[in-house]
Structure formats: C-alpha cells, structure tokens
Amino acid sequence: MYTQGLDIPKGDKSIPVEQGDSPEAVRFQARIDADEKIEPKDWMPEGYRKTLIRQISQHAHSEVIGMQPEGNWITRAPTLRRKAILMAKVQDEGGHGLYLYSAAETLGVSRDELVDQLLDGSAKYSSIFNYPTLTWADIGAIGWLVDGAAIMNQIPLCRCSYGPYARAMIRICKEESFHQRQGYELMLSLSRGTAEQKAMMQDAFDRWWWPALMMFGPHDTKGGAEGMKSQHSEQSMKWRIKRVSNDELRQKFVDVTVPQAEYLGLKVPDPYLKWNAATSHYDFGPIDWDEFKNVLAGNGPCNKKRLKVRREAHERGAWVREAAMAYAAKKAKRQAA
C-alpha cells in the first residue's frame, strides 16, 4: 500500500531541488533522460537522494502502519478461508515494509533511524490508515479501493529511475494485484449476500471512497486553488522518481473503479459523478481538501491511536531486542574463544 499524497509539502526547505550544473550533475541528468537506472554507488545529487529516502521510507512506514487496520479483523474474520487470506495479506504488507526499508538503506540511512522518525512523529505515512476499519466489509474496501489506488500509483514507479526502488516495486505490485483482487472478490460475496451484508458493503464504500481519492494527493495539473502543488513535484518528474501526475492517476482510478462499483450494485457517494462522453472520462465532485489537510496534520480518526500502538509495541519489545543482541554478543564471544 502506498500513497502519492506523501509528496513533499510546499515550503519544505530540507530537501534541495537544485542539482547544479557540475559535470557529474549533467551526466546524471543525461542518464536519467536516457531512461538508465541509477544504482546505489552511482553519483547522485543530494536532493535526489533525500527525496528518495523520504519517499521510500514513507512508503515503508505506510506498509507497517497499514498492518493495524487490517490486523483489527484477523481474529474476527468470518470464515477460515477469509482468515487465512487476511493473514497472508498482512504478512505481505510486513514483507513490503522490510523490502522497502532495505531499499532505503541503499541510500545511506539505517532502518533504525527511519523507524525512530516514524515513532517520534517526524516521518509521515499514508493518511488512509488513519481511518478506522469498523466492519468486515472495510477489509474488502481496503483491498479493492486502497490497494487498487496503490497499484495505480506504483505501476509507474516500476519504471522509476532508482534501480533498487524500481525493482522493489515490481515485486510489490505483483502482490498488491493479488490483494486488490481478493478485496474485490470479498465485496462480490457481500453483493450476493443478504440485505445486511449489502448494507454493510455500501456503508464501507461510503466511508472509503473519498479517502481513496485523496490517496493520490493534491491537484497538480488543474485548478491548483488548493495551492499545494510544489516545486518538488516538478523536480521529481524531472528525476523520474515520479512519472505520472496525481490528477491523471486519480482520474484513471475513478474511470476503472466506477464500473466495478456499479457491478457490485453500489451507489457512489458523489452527486456530481457522471460519465462525460466528450472526454471519455467520469466527471466527479470536489474533494474535501480541508479533511485531507486535517488528517495529514494529525487530526484523523485514528492518527493518535496508530502511532501509540506502534510506539507501545516498540517499547514493549525493547527487552526482547536487547536480549537478542546480548545473546548474539555472547555467542560471538564464545565462538571466538
């Protein structure tokens, strides 16, 4: 899972966007323009390195935090088959987290540092996980909509200029594709079920639809009234860390998802939604960017809980990690003796 909405905010000066015009910088940009992959030991501008560390680590944190809303239903899954699928899925998310932390480490940062940033609240993760999973249908909605949106974001990243990240994305996309299908298949079962199951599905859809659209981040091609378009976004495009605009991806998501919703018998919670024959796209209503900014600023339904759970698990596990280190040291000493 992932969100492009993790773009670096406007006014953030911690990451330089200029790469200069040194011979290395010129050669670097030429390689990017030729669609070559940049590898860990290659020269790279500081801004490129920092942007990637931020993006990859936010992605990793999102996978790890994302285990909470789904884990909320493992012990209560309605059937053993669904339980097994959800267990495997959550295990995949943890694996994506590990894989992405490793990709970030190739850029000269340690996983411990990144985890510390998550725990002290300075690093962001995808805002979508600050929404609660209130019913079993939410597990379907997450798979179908959240993982579906994630795939839209991640497919272009398989062609990202940084080799380790692009390769990680190829593997992750394969698993996300499975997650998305299981989510839709879960919804399909509900759509064929009782009135209670259908109501549960519609309720979940109503709650996840708009947050899923927000996952693509602020407008960056049209409107711009939100004023959230940043210089970083343009530079990321130039560096081929980001390859498609937020708005294009969001439109693609809406176009793919609306017919699926109709097939499930769901009503999209948007009075402005309609097919536009002239553009061959769905038009949709305005996104509540106040909600987006609020959740991003820490005021979502579960922001505090998600971090608290993560911090407490980390603190409760401290004695285990210390013991493992102590044992490894003892063992090494014995072997040396």
Binding site: K83, M87, V309, R316, G317, V320, R321
Partner: peptide, 12 residues
C-alpha cells in the same frame, strides 16, 4: 494472530 502489529520486531 493477536500479535499482529504488536511483535518486538517486524521480522517477528
């Protein structure tokens, strides 16, 4: 399964 997101390390 009750350990989900609560283990001492991600690997665990």
């Amino acid at each position: 399964a009750e350990w989900c997101a609560d283990a001492p390390e991600l690997e665990e």
